[in-house]
Design a protein around this nucleic acid. Sequence first.
RNA 1: CGGGGUGUAGCUCAGUUUGGCCAGAGCGCCUGGUUUGGGACCAGGAAGUCGCAGGUUCGAAUCCUGUCACCCCGACCA
Length: 578
Amino acid sequence: MRYSQTFIPTVKEVPADAEIPSHQLMIRAGLMRKLASGTYIYLPAGQRILRKVMEIVRQEMDRAGALECTVPVVQPAELWQRTGRDVDYGETLGKFKDRHGRMNVLSPTAEEGFTYLASQEIQSYKQLPVNLYQINTKYRDEFRPRFGVLRSREFMMKDAYSFHASEACLHRTYMAMYEAYKRVFARCGLTYVIVEAETGEMGGTGSHQFTIPCASGEDVIVYTAAEDRAWNIEKAPVDPVAKPPAAEAGPPEEVHTPNVGSIEAVCEFLKTRPEQMIKTLVYQSGEEVFAALVRGDHEVNPEKLNQFFVGRHIELADEATIRKVTGAAVGFAGPVGLAGHVDRILIDHAAAAMAVGVTGANKTDYHLKNVVPGRDFPLEGEAVQVCDIRNAAEGDTYGGKKLLFKRGIEVGQVFKLGTKYSTKLEARFLDEEGNRKPCLMGCYGIGINRIIASAIELNNDEWGILWPMSIAPWQVMITPAAPEAEIVAAAEEIYQQLLNQGVEVLLDDRDLRAGVKFKDADLLGIPIRITLGKKSFAEGKAEVKLRSEKDKEMIDLAATAEHVSKMVRQMLDQLNAV
RNA sequence: CGGGGUGUAGCUCAGUUUGGCCAGAGCGCCUGGUUUGGGACCAGGAAGUCGCAGGUUCGAAUCCUGUCACCCCGACCA
C-alpha cells in the first residue's frame, strides 16, 4: 500500500474527550473517529487491525472445531420475551419498533438466536455436540459509554454457543475453547490473566474470564499473593474475619443524627469510623424485600447476593419500599427490630463478627450506638443467614492467603450456561433411551475491539503505538527520507520485492519532510521500518529499525527485502508458537 | 437517572465574570518561494448561523428561559 493512496488522518493534538492511551492513540494514529457517544467509525488502518484480530480469532475457533455462522443483529423481541431477557437486560437492551409495529431487539449477545436455531434443527443426541460461532456487531445501550472502544455501545464480538448431551461433553468443549482463547490472546501478543468468574452454582469451573492487566481496566482482579488463583472481584471469596473478644457494651442507645444519612456523614457526626458501622441495604426482588448487612467500610457484592436468588432479578429497593419496611427515611435503616418487616436478612461475616457497632435506628434522623450483633439483632433463624455477600477488600484473605488486587480489561469469557436457554426455547434432543432433554449449553465470547485497545494500552510510548507483528495494520513501513530520484527508486524496488514475498508493506511515498514521516510512522506503530536516506544510500545500505528498539541495523540494499521478510516471519512465528 | 462540566474555524482552546472594538490565537488547510533525517521558515489566503430555539436590550458569543449534544463523577443511601 502506498501512503499517498490510503487514508490515515493522523493528528498532533490529543483529542479533548479521550482519557486513556488507547483511546487517544486510536484517534491520533488515524485508526478511528467518533460518530456519536460510544460509536466509532473504523478508518482504513483501523479496519485492517480489526480484520487481523478477527482472522486470528477465526483461525483458532476453526482449529478448535467451532463452526462459523451469522445471526441477524436485529432480532424479534418475542424471542427475548421467551427467555425473559427483554426484562433482565433492562435499559441496556436496544429496541425499536418496525413499520408493522413489531418490537425488535438489537442483539447485545446471541444466546436466543443460536438456541432458536438449535431448537429447530437438533433432534437427536447423535447430532451433538455442536459448537457454533459468529463474529458480528453487538449493540448495548450502555449506561455510560467511556474509554473509547473499551466500553462502547456498538462493538464487534466473537460469540460461540455449544450444545451438548452431557456434562462431560460440555466440559470438553469448554476446555477446548479455554485453550483456543489462550492461543488467541498469545498470538495477539497480549499478556493475560485467567480469572475465575463463577464458582458455586455450577460446581467447579463454571466460568473463566480472560483479562488483560492494566491501569485502564474497568474490572478488578483479585489474586492470591502466591498467584495460584485469581478471580474477578464479583466472585472473589473471602475468609470470614475473626471475631474480636466481646467488648463491654451498654444497651443500644438512640442518638439524634438530623439529616445525617450517609456512612461518611454519620462517621463525621458521631466521630466514629466506617468499620465501626453496620450498613443496612434494602433490596427487592419482585415482591420479596430483603436486607443485606455489611460493615460500613465494605461493599455489597450484587453477584454474591444473586446466589441466594438464582435466576431472579434483584435491585436496590425504591424509596417507598424502604420507608415502608424501616418506617424511616432513606439513610436510617438498621437491623434492630427489622426481622419482621423484611422477608429475609443476609448478614455478611464481617458485619456479624463485629463486637459492637453503630447502625441506623429505623427512625428518621436517628442512629443506634452500642449495637451488638447476636444480642440486639439475631444472627440465625429461619429468615436470617450469615454469609459472604461483600467484595473482597484490602487486608482480606482466602484460604489463609493474602488477597491482592489489580485492574484488568476483560477481553474474553467462557461460560457453562447449563440449560437455561435450551429449556426456555425448547432446544431439546432425544437421548439413547429416547428421553427428551434440553441441551446443555456453553457460551464463549471475545471482544474484538477490546483486544485492539488492550494491545495499545500494553504497548505504547510517548511517540505512539507499538503493534505486535500479528495485528499491526502493516508489517513493514518504508520511509524514503530524501527526495532524490534514485532513493525513491530504491525504495520502490524494495517495496515491490517485499510485496512479492507476501509482506504487508506501507510505502511512505508522500512528498513530505523526513521528520513528518518519522513522526507518523512512530504514531502508527508499524513494527519494522526501513529508512532510505542520502548517507546510507551512498554506502549502498538501507536502515532497518524496529519500532520497539532504539538502534537500527544497516543492511545492503540488495539484501534488505529478504532480510526484512525473514524478520517478519520470525516475529510472527514467535507469537504463534503457543 | 442524579450531580458536575463543556459546546466559539477541521483540531486544541482564549474571549463570557463586568453586553458595545472587526470574533481571536496556535496547529491544520490553500497559493508562492526558500527548505529537506525527527511534526521547517517567510509572505499571502480561505475558513466560524459563537450547539439550537426563544426572550431581555438601542445593541447578545457574553444576560434570562427552554432544548439538544458531548465529557466527567455517582450503590456507600441505608
